[in-house]
Design a binder for these strands. Structure first.
Lengths: 187, 187
DNA sequence: ATTGGCATGTAAGAAGTTACATGATTAC
DNA sequence: GTAATCATGTAACTTCTTACATGCCAAT
């Protein structure tokens, strides 16, 4: 595993600014709070954590637990924070390669009966609906938390990111419904 | 290179339903007409074409050209079309792993001065604006073509796919502008 | 003169996924 | 009793990207 342009490094460093976490925690956190724009998996997290430790960007401490494997808690170092900031300051190259298998099928749907395409679209709508619902739940939770904190928050970055997810989710659903309607209106 | 779940296979088979093409053509086609939801690159296209030929899903013919390398034209076989249809009929698993580096930076932006984040957002808006403009051009072209064909078209699948790109592009831009405004309004 | 388009390809490496291995605890 | 959660890790593999190699033609 080389340094280079491994984005998981920064995702992990970023999460560790919130709190010290284990590999397991990191995975759970991405699943719960970042799944609409990021994912990680164990087979990448564990080696990356070791790498980061070797570079002195994080330090680990062991937490003994009864009847369970020890937790390896990783904490961000000052170097780690500096490295994260360096990356945050870098301009981001616009990278448009979001392969969408659903759309690929739609693009070549003339090879297949209309009924199949409509069925697939309904399936997709279902999945989108579920995703959007869980995002809206997340949003409600986050807003409650934000209100309960009496201290006025300077910068609601996490809520803004969430709002991106909501915008996209809604736009996808709108398109999906429009499209199903159009397809159903075809001869 | 194994068969398995290589999606490029189906993208290539699909494009070859439109016309026989060379590896070069296939790349150009994705760039011109599918870039908002799909991409391919040479280092993947050429080996995949060979693989597809070995499997009998495409056949190649050589086209001699003066002062230029020969074009290897690939044509879909009946088996190839059948394989494409098989895939089109399969249900699509909803796969939400669209890693978005811009959002990752937004998520951890509290580590960095507000001005940096605003700058980055303006950059992103610029890129989105350009993408959307070129999509709108594509749409205009496609609509003109659709009108010129006097024969009523049964199924405007390509236009529907394009419409997805437009929906998403606009939603992203809307969010981007909202977000810039909010950030600029912060203390 | 030099950039961009036409045209095909390979090698090497980075990035990401799946399957496996282990094993206790808790909730249904 | 069976599934889910907690917890860490590796091996093998697939997928994808970058860089390299070659060389002519047309346009600026």
């Amino acid at each position: 595993m080389k340094r280079s342009e491994n984005k998981s490094r920064y995702a992990i460093l970023g999460m560790l600014t919130i709190a010290p976490m284990s590999g397991y925690d990191l995975k759970k956190f991405t699943e719960k709070s970042m799944n609409y724009f990021w994912n990680e998996n164990y087979a990448w997290i564990y080696p990356t954590l070791k790498q980061l430790e070797q570079e002195g960007l994080v330090v680990s401490s062991q937490e003994k637990q009864e009847g369970r494997p020890d937790r390896h808690l990783y904490t961000l170092t000052e170097q780690g924070r500096a490295e994260l900031r360096r990356w945050l300051n870098e301009p981001t190259v616009f990278h448009e390669t979001p392969r969408n298998e659903h759309l690929l099928k739609m693009f070549f749907a003339d090879q297949v009966p209309l009924s199949i395409t409509i069925e697939q679209m309904r399936f997709w709508r279902e999945a989108l609906q579920n995703m959007l619902t869980s995002l809206e739940d997340l949003d409600r939770q986050a807003s409650v938390v934000a209100l309960e904190q009496k201290v006025p928050q300077g910068r609601p970055y996490r809520l803004l990111a969430l709002s991106y997810g909501l915008h996209m989710g809604r736009a996808q659903l709108v398109w999906c419904e429009e499209t199903i309607a159009k397809l159903e209106g075809l001869p």
